[in-house]
Design a protein around this nucleic acid. Structure first.
Length: 822
DNA sequence: AGCACGCCGACT
DNA sequence: GTCGGCGTGCTC
């Protein structure tokens, strides 16, 4: 047979595909292949037929890894759309869609050999010394990293030639599928007489038979052995042709062991019914326009999703449900599991690679037909997709922060369109992008204006922190206490909030306190010289964590001992300023002795199920006050929570980012929505120094429309999304000056290209990024701004493939439709 | 990303 | 002269 040519995308950061020869017919697009690449072997994806290549001879595919493509055509199409729109390398886009275990690379190992006494170069000696530590085979890549002396391949080859070491290459790994041996009953013995006849005096075999029969005819071999049956007993049954031994694929599903609560059967309200019917008829018509489900907090959006999914399943189709961060929305996920049981694959961020692969295969085979997960669940390989639900569509976590920098919500719309599926974006506080799409008729709006069960939205009160501070200052002046300390110390709990909490505690109701800032103090400042302790890798202040008595960088996780004296001038007069959740916990515990408090933030939720555990305790009434960062603001539904307190609403408001107000409004609205979800009603107290800010005022009045109107107007000058499309181009490198000049050169390059190509795109900048240094890298950025999306794609593609910074250290990150410009 | 190739300064 | 540092271009 004649060889065919295939185009292969490899998971590398290069905007290029490669052509290989393959014996016989070309494998279909979406098939994985193992190919030689440079001096190594890699796994890539066939994305189409290859074209004749002019340069040197083509290499041949080493192995076609699957008989039918593992990536469905639809997912492949989605990845190609993503690669083009977000201007990401095609192989990187594909890697984002597949379980990690499917894209391994070859590994090189070195083993020390006989130490010859030939002359070695200093570089060779370093390699030998690094190797002599152990006699075990070592990965070349880790050796290289440890030595930090560039490529060590010339040394390895030279050393191997004199016998000082040997090396071998292991091919890329294929994913392991866990199997277990199972014993299966193949002949059923009808009655006692037959048992007597077949088994006779073989007492243990007879008992084993009974156990197997009771278990439904199939049992893991290990289970039988664990019950004390000897191997020979099983063999006896096998020789009598009563059972067969076989292998069974084992799905690693950590959720299988979790309890499933029975579904609560709820009757939809009129508004819910209408939404459900609209969605159901769209499902039948295969209507293409996405829906924006705008429902106030507590209006029962989840019920609408569940009814839609029910109809999707009835029509024999499958569905995808995106949630912002799976660990943070256990209650929502639990509801899907309770209704659809083992049809649901939960793609949890804490899954191991093997577990993720198992879930993926279960979806691929149709064994499970609802994928629930964070943004990557979008690529679930389900067949006959009927619907995609994006819950809390406004959430910033739908944006991937590394290449491919896609937005889960926007890509959900694209996949639904490719599949002819219904797409529902739900939120109490829709993103302004979705809101404007709805206003322009691109999306269809569905409203759930009221809470279910006659619940009312909570009343919201504002406490002006400026007034509180003034009052406390005056009080401390009159009673002679330290005025400076009082001014600096910040207010944690105002009298109004203390009183409201006390009331709830007295009535055994529950309280949620939000402060969107971790740690104890957000910075440490020397009173003598004013120096603020900053991260050694990032241009941000370090946060003081009191429990560990350490300063921590919340960007790169750098940690150091908390100082006793100023590291610049030596003064011991340090002030710990700015309030974090750890401090709130301490103040609350001191103020309300006896109250049962739980804190939920990144620092207290490191374990796989720690979210579940904390929230479980709240659910069971073992917690009076739940305090935490934004992770307590979403999706929680506890009817006994009657008070929500926002310790400081201003956190994040002053970030140099055009979405600062929007994020504040969303956070305040979402957390307010946790109050009064039961018959007890609810109240919200927001402490702020900006009571006049429109984000605060709109949250106070539960008035999304007023917020949207005001914020849309604010974004016209200068123009920001959704009025225009943006891309953020960030250049970074280890030295400050080369990054700055590269950014200048890059912006100049783009401006010239735009001029020549007469593209309708503006370049704004360059300028240092708001966070000028991150993870030890200096950062500059510029923006591309346009009203014409396609134009931006053209410009970005030209730039990313054509601009050469001539600096290997420099990295360029292209972020289209950014959620933050930091 | 990771490697080879090639040019250049530093040191045996 | 040789070694190793680093910029540049390529990987089918």
């Amino acid at each position: 047979m004649n060889p065919s040519l295939v185009q292969v995308a490899l998971p590398l950061p290069i905007h290029q595909t490669f052509t290989y020869a393959v014996e016989g017919d070309a494998p279909a697009a979406g098939t994985r292949v193992r190919v030689p690449f440079g001096r190594e072997e890699r796994i890539g994806w066939v994305i189409g037929p290859g074209e004749e290549h002019h340069s040197r001879g083509l290499k041949a595919v080493l192995a076609v890894l699957e008989s039918s493509p593992s990536l469905p055509e639809e997912v492949l199409g989605l990845c190609q759309w993503m690669a083009e729109y977000y201007v990401a390398p095609p192989g990187i886009a594909l890697r984002a869609a597949a379980p990690a275990v499917l894209t391994d690379v070859s590994r090189d190992y070195v083993v020390p050999g006989a130490l010859g006494d030939g002359r070695l170069t200093p570089r060779q000696r370093r390699v030998v010394e690094a190797l002599s530590a152990t006699s075990k085979p070592q990965r070349v890549s880790s050796l290289r990293k440890r030595l930090d002396m560039g490529s060590i391949w010339p040394e390895i080859r030279a050393l191997a030639a004199v016998g000082a070491l040997s090396y071998q290459t292991l091919p890329p790994r294929e994913p392991s599928v866990r199997r277990r041996r199972v014993v299966r009953l193949v002949r059923w013995l009808a009655d006692l007489a037959e048992r007597e006849e077949v088994l006779g005096k073989a007492r243990r075999q007879r008992e084993a038979y009974d156990v197997l029969e009771a278990a439904g005819g199939k049992l893991a071999l290990s289970q039988l052995l664990a019950q004390g049956f000897a191997r020979s007993v099983v063999e006896g049954l096998e020789s009598r042709a009563l059972v067969e031994l076989g292998d069974e694929e084992l799905a690693r599903d950590p959720f299988a062991a979790r309890e499933v609560v029975p579904p609560a059967r709820l009757t939809p309200t009129a508004a819910q019914s209408e939404a459900i019917e609209r969605l159901a008829s769209a499902l039948e018509d295969r209507a293409r326009r996405p829906f924006l489900l705008h429902g106030v907090t507590g209006s029962g959006k989840t019920l609408v999703y569940i009814e839609l999914l029910r109809r999707v399943l009835e029509s024999g189709r499958s569905a995808i449900v995106l949630v912002p961060e799976i660990a943070l929305t256990p209650q929502t996920v639990a509801r899907f599991r309770s209704h659809f049981g083992d049809k649901v694959a939960v793609l949890h961020s804490a899954l191991s690679d093997g577990e993720r692969y198992d879930a993926w295969r279960a979806l691929r085979s149709g064994e499970k037909c609802i994928a629930v997960g964070a943004r990557s669940a979008l690529f679930a390989p389900v067949q006959r997709l009927g619907a995609i639900v994006v819950d809390e569509e406004h959430e910033a976590s739908y944006k991937q922060s590394e290449a491919p920098r896609y937005h889960g919500r926007d890509l959900a719309v694209v996949r639904a369109e490719l599949a002819g599926a219904v797409c529902v974006l739900g939120s109490a506080t829709p993103s302004l992008e979705s809101w404007s799409n709805q206003a322009r008729g691109k999306f269809v709006r569905l409203d759930l204006p009221e809470r279910v069960g006659g619940g009312r939205l909570p009343t919201v009160r504002v406490v002006d922190l400026r007034e509180v501070r003034k009052a406390r200052l005056a009080a401390s002046a009159s009673n002679g206490s330290d005025k400076a300390a009082a001014a600096e110390g910040g207010v944690v709990l105002s009298d109004q909030l203390v009183e409201a909490i006390r009331q709830r505690l007295g009535r055994s109701e529950q309280i949620i306190l939000l402060l969107n800032r971790r740690g104890y103090s957000s910075f440490v400042q020397c009173r003598e010289c004013g120096d603020v302790r900053a991260c050694v890798h990032c241009s941000v202040a370090l946060t003081y964590h009191r429990l560990r008595h350490r300063l921590v960088c919340h960007h790169c996780r750098h940690e150091e001992e908390a100082p006793r004296r100023c590291l610049r001038c030596g003064s011991q007069d340090l002030s710990f300023r700015g309030i974090g959740t750890e401090q709130v916990e301490r103040v609350v515990a001191a103020t309300f002795s006896g109250a049962r408090i739980a804190r939920m933030d990144v620092d207290t939720t490191s374990g796989k199920w720690s979210h579940h555990e904390i929230l479980g305790r709240v659910e069971k009434g073992e917690i009076d006050i739940l305090l935490g960062t934004q992770m307590i603001a979403k999706g929680l539904d506890f009817p006994r929570v009657t008070l929500v307190g926002v310790v400081n609403a201003d956190v994040g408001m002053h970030l140099p980012d055009f979405r600062a107000s929007e994020r504040t409004f969303q956070l305040l609205s979402q957390v307010s929505g946790r109050a009064g979800r039961g018959p007890l009603g609810g109240e919200v107290i927001i402490q702020t120094s900006l009571p006049e800010h429109h984000a605060v005022r709109a949250a106070l009045a539960h008035d999304y429309l007023a917020f949207a109107k005001r914020e849309l107007a604010a974004r016209t000058q200068p123009p920001y999304p959704p009025h225009v499309r943006l891309a953020n181009v960030v250049l970074s490198g280890p030295e400050s000056e080369p990054v700055a000049s590269a950014a200048e050169a890059a912006a100049r390059w783009v401006r010239r290209w735009i001029l020549r190509a007469t593209a309708d795109v503006e370049v704004v900048g360059p300028a240092p990024s708001p966070i000028e240094r991150l993870h030890g890298r200096w950062r500059w950025h510029f923006l591309l701004r346009t009203r014409a999306a396609a134009e931006l794609t053209r410009v970005a593609q030209a730039f990313l493939t054509g601009f050469d910074p001539k600096d290997a250290q420099l990295r360029i990150a292209f972020d289209r439709d950014p959620v933050a410009l930091l």
